[in-house]
């Protein structure tokens, strides 16, 4: 596997940073690859768009930051406005469809959508929307194996929430399978 770059974005409180942590952990600890996870600090990280950046490679990661990500996960309109204009053509854009409205800026991207937050709310806990999204991400990309992502997720959350997070992850997987079966739009 050559170098892969992913940006996960949303607003503070959605668990974006934890998602980056889990993705990197899945790749480096459970898939045996190299992964570097970084995040934005500073004033730009407060309130507005929040982002986690993950680089995955079978070789050691020399350059720790993403330069030209091929996967962009967007869980807020603010993050959409900030990161989509600079996102590469034909990159895979994954959105939370209830929180993000797509416009002509995304017409050259492959787009996959999932109502991650709605699914989480239906489970009674909006906070697991990020885990739903990770289940989806593991299914629709080959960044990490599904087992690695599951293992990384379930070892990164409080033990008493394992059952809830497992359901959230599986729901994301299920939506991912459906999305793959339906084909990629865009």
């Amino acid at each position: 596997m050559s170098r892969k770059e992913v940006r996960l974005s949303g607003f503070g409180g959605q668990g974006i940073v934890l998602s980056g942590m889990i993705l990197g952990k899945a790749a480096s600890i459970y898939d045996g690859k190299h992964a570097t996870f970084t995040q934005s600090y500073g004033p730009e990280a407060r309130g507005g768009a929040c982002a986690a950046e993950v680089v995955i490679n079978s070789q050691p990661v020399h350059y720790p930051h993403i330069v030209d990500p091929e996967v962009l996960v967007v869980m807020s309109q603010g993050a959409y406005n900030r990161y989509v204009p600079e996102f590469r053509e034909s990159g895979l854009l994954i959105i939370d469809m209830d929180l993000v409205t797509v416009d002509e800026q995304a017409e050259n991207h492959r787009i996959l959508s999932i109502p991650a937050t709605r699914i989480a709310e239906e489970m009674g806990q909006r906070v697991v929307a990020n885990i739903v999204m990770l289940g989806f991400l593991a299914t629709v990309t080959d960044l990490v194996s599904i087992d690695a992502m599951r293992e990384a997720a379930l070892t990164s959350i409080p033990k008493r929430t394992i059952e809830l997070n497992t359901r959230a992850f599986e729901a994301g997987l299920e939506h991912g399978r459906k999305a793959m079966a339906a084909g990629v739009s865009g």
Partner: peptide
């Protein structure tokens, strides 16, 4: 700050 705030194995 790069190494201190970077997460890796």
């Amino acid at each position: 700050a790069e190494v201190g705030h970077m997460t890796e194995k």
